[in-house]
Each structure stands twice: as structure tokens, then as C-alpha cells.
Design a binder for these strands. Structure first.
Length: 278
DNA sequence: CGCATATCCTGACTGC
DNA sequence: TGCAGTCAGGATATGC
């Protein structure tokens, strides 16, 4: 369940460990991971190239290659990037792509559910980002998410607020966990209709979005018991210990003690406190 | 255009 | 203890 904080944690690891390294080998064993352009395109686009910077947009990880193309990685539900110092170490089950570096280390993409993707971008769009990202929304930690801009996004929408918050074309990076945590702190119910959110509430949601995501990055993201998110080194995040509502159905609200409720919105579970959130 | 729903997939969990 | 069924969810395609 990697969302913005988990992807940002991986990006920081890559920034520290692989920037300046040249790719000397690419081994693709999982065809679904490279379904966009195929294995040959990945090998051709990656071999011999230098990773000279890292970036992130929403949940997309971007590695700039020789200042031209981007290596684009999306972890989706169960994708994991691991950096190993010894390429002869045993492969984790569901290892789909191995990228050998000129310092002898190896980057491995592991993904049991194969929803994740790895590809070299086919070009850069008007927004300076890989064309494949399409019209990706505002990134709360890269751009400035203001109450005013959020209010404009929500205005006139009839969808549930939680569904709008998870729409990557509006705000990029929020998933099911952080969506619930943000709305708890902003004191707004997830099942409110987007268009009914006041400018004052939009201000709180925008502020808490930045706060929650920043705190979560500081904690190295959230590693749930049933998810397999870790950083590049295989270490767990710790923000799961600060979850106020996500996955806490029936447990007492930290603020008022009443049981946390669970509802289904847009096909996914939402957790909230019906007393603290309006 | 907006909004709802189905789809992809494996592993963890539930109930018999 | 084993096994079938359910659920988890990010992005996208499709239907209305």
C-alpha cells in the first residue's frame, strides 16, 4: 500500500545511494512488470546510462537518465525496491527486474501482485514530466496545496470527499490510509459530498494533508502487518503506530473514546470517528 | 464531462 | 488441519 510517504522514503534512499551510478546490466524476468513497452525496451533504454537525479510525482518514482529520459517506477499495491550489496544474494520470491550498477550493487524490483510497473519514458510532456503520467494532480509536498486550490477542486463535485481526495488527477499521492488520517485530523467526515465542503474545512484539509504526509515521511512511511512495504534497505516504516483511524474499526477514538466506524465509499473502506468528524 | 463499477493479482485471513 | 471463499487496493477501461 505504498502512498506518497512510502514512495518519498524510497526516493530519498535512491537519491543517497544510486545517483551518479551507471547501469551496467538489466535482467527482466517478470513480463507484467514491463508490460507498457516490453523487456527489450527497458534493457535498451537503461543499459549504459547514468542515473543523475531522482524525483517523485504523487506515487510515481522518477530516475533521470543522462538528463534526457526518466526511468519510471510505480509500486502500486505490493511493489518493493531493494538495494542489495551482493548480487549473488538469494532472490526474493516475485523478483521481476534486476538492475546491476557500476559499483557492484543491484537494484531489485519485487512485486507479488504484479500491479507495479517499470519503464523508461517515451518522452517528456509540456509539464516537464514523463508523458505516461498524463494529467497528474498537485503533489502536496512538491507543489503548494492551499485551501483555496483544494476548495476549487471540490467545488461542484457530487462525489464523496474521500473519493475526491484519492483522485490522483486532483491531488497526487494520497491513498486509502493517509486519506482517512488526513480527514480525521481535519475533523471532516469521509462521506461528506465534495461540493458541501466549506472553505474553512478545505483550509483544514489542505493543511492537514501537508502535515500528515510530512510527518509520515519523517517516520519512514507506514508498514502494515498485511502489506509488505519497506525502504530500499528492507527496513520498516513506523507511522503505522500513529494511525488514529485507519484499520481501527471498533477501537476507541484517541480523542473522544467512542468506537471508530467503518464505511464503504467508492469501493473501499473508510475509517472515521462519527463524533469528532463532521 | 462526471461518476460508478469491474478488472488486474497474490497473500492473509475467515469460516466451516 | 485443510480448503474454499473473501478481502485488500492504484490506476485504468468501460458503461451510463
Amino acid at each position: 500500500v505504498p502512498e506518497l510517504p512510502e514512495v518519498e522514503t524510497v526516493r530519498r534512499g535512491l537519491d543517497a545511494e544510486v545517483v551518479g551510478r551507471k547501469v551496467i546490466s538489466v535482467d527482466v524476468t517478470g513480463m507484467r512488470t514491463v508490460r507498457r513497452y516490453g523487456p527489450e525496451a527497458l534493457v535498451a533504454g537503461l543499459e549504459g546510462r547514468v542515473i543523475d537525479s531522482t524525483a517523485r510525482r504523487g506515487k510515481y518514482l522518477l530516475l533521470s537518465l543522462d538528463g534526457e529520459d526518466y526511468l519510471v517506477i510505480h509500486l502500486r499495491m505490493s511493489g518493493q525496491l531493494l538495494l542489495v550489496h551482493d548480487p549473488s544474494l538469494p532472490l526474493a520470491l516475485h523478483t521481476h527486474v534486476r538492475v546491476g550498477l557500476d559499483d557492484g550493487r543491484e537494484l531489485r524490483f519485487v512485486d507479488p501482485r504484479t500491479f507495479g510497473e517499470v519503464f523508461v519514458s517515451g518522452g517528456i510532456g509540456d509539464n516537464g514530466l514523463p508523458v505516461e503520467l498524463g494529467r497528474v494532480g498537485v503533489d502536496p509536498l512538491v507543489d503548494d496545496l492551499t485551501g483555496k486550490s483544494l476548495a476549487a477542486m471540490l467545488a461542484g463535485r457530487r462525489s464523496f470527499l474521500k473519493v475526491a481526495l484519492l483522485d490522483q488527477h486532483l491531488i497526487a499521492g494520497i491513498g486509502n490510509i493517509y486519506g482517512d488520517e488526513i480527514l480525521f485530523r481535519a475533523k471532516v467526515r469521509p462521506d461528506r459530498r465534495s461540493g458541501t465542503v466549506t472553505s474553512r474545512e478545505a483550509g483544514r484539509i489542505a493543511r492537514e494533508t501537508t502535515t500528515v504526509l510530512t510527518e509520515a515521511v519523517g517516520a519512514g512511511g507506514s508498514t502494515l502487518n498485511d502489506a509488505r512495504y519497506t525502504n530500499l534497505m528492507g527496513e520498516w516504516g513506523s507511522f503505522q503506530h500513529q494511525h488514529a483511524v485507519y484499520g481501527r474499526e471498533g477501537k476507541p477514538c484517541a480523542r473522544c473514546g467512542r468506537p471508530i466506524k467503518r464505511v464503504r465509499l467508492g469501493g473501499r473502506s473508510s475509517f472515521y470517528c462519527e463524533h469528532c468528524q463532521v
